[in-house]
């Protein structure tokens, strides 16, 4: 309710609120991947909500802070903290066959955020969902699959087919992430600035009209 006065300061340096948001969303992505925390389709399939955390970070924080929160998470993982889905961590994950998906997470969050910021302060469900599909599935697979194929010396086609098992789960995550992001953008207008400067006035008006 009470915004820090520094929030609107024009500066290249991130404000304390930005730092706090990036850190909190990095933690959120980690928590959504905690072992046994939440699993889609019961606990049989090892699908956690971690990649949904990536969608939420991009959808809610915009491209810059969204991608940064994923980078921060990956740095901590590389330093040895077991913050990836299923409690994985350490440098080993960056040398394994699924390393590409992690890089895909960073780019995916950025693409989602960029697309969402094109429309803000409005967040039409179809547009938000499209952004999550393009960034959260398209971009992630686009980086993840070739790296998987290269690391295992298999064909792209085979690697892509193997990744199909995750598609239904990812589709469900898009639906949930879009609904949650929509609720957040209604509840916290102005949490992320739109891309164009002209639009930012509109965001300000909407925020103050609350």
């Amino acid at each position: 309710m009470i915004q820090p006065s520094s929030g609107g300061r024009a500066s290249r340096r991130m404000s304390s609120r930005d730092l706090a948001l990036v850190a909190s969303f990095a933690a959120l992505i980690a928590v959504l991947g905690l072992p046994g925390s939440i699993t889609v389709f019961g606990s049989a399939a090892p699908i956690t909500l971690q990649s949904m955390g990536v969608m939420l970070a991009g959808s809610i924080l915009g491209w810059k802070r969204g991608a940064l929160s994923v980078v921060v998470l990956l740095v901590l993982v590389a330093a040895g903290l077991p913050l990836l889905a299923g409690g994985r961590g350490g440098l080993a994950v960056f040398f394994g066959p699924t390393a590409g998906y992690l890089i895909g997470f960073v780019l995916g969050a950025a693409v989602i955020g960029w697309l969402v910021q094109q429309r803000l302060p409005a967040y039409p469900l179809w547009w938000g969902g499209l952004a999550n599909v393009v960034g959260g599935i398209g971009v992630v697979y686009l980086v993840g699959i070739p790296v998987l194929a290269a690391a295992t010396s298999t064909s792209l086609w085979l690697a892509a087919t193997g990744s199909l098992v995750f598609l239904p789960g990812d589709a469900l995550k898009v639906v949930i992430a879009t609904a949650v992001a929509s609720a957040v953008h209604r509840g916290y207008p102005g949490i992320t600035a739109p891309t164009a400067a002209v639009k930012s006035d509109r965001a300000g008006e909407q925020a103050s009209a609350r």
């Binding site: 304390s16 909190s24 609720a183």
Partner: peptide, 25 residues
Amino acid sequence: STRALVTPIVVRTIRHADRVGEALA
């Protein structure tokens, strides 16, 4: 309902960030 779980967590994450930002300032 996964949504009934995720929405409050995200809202609280933002609220936590607001408070942390204020404390940092």
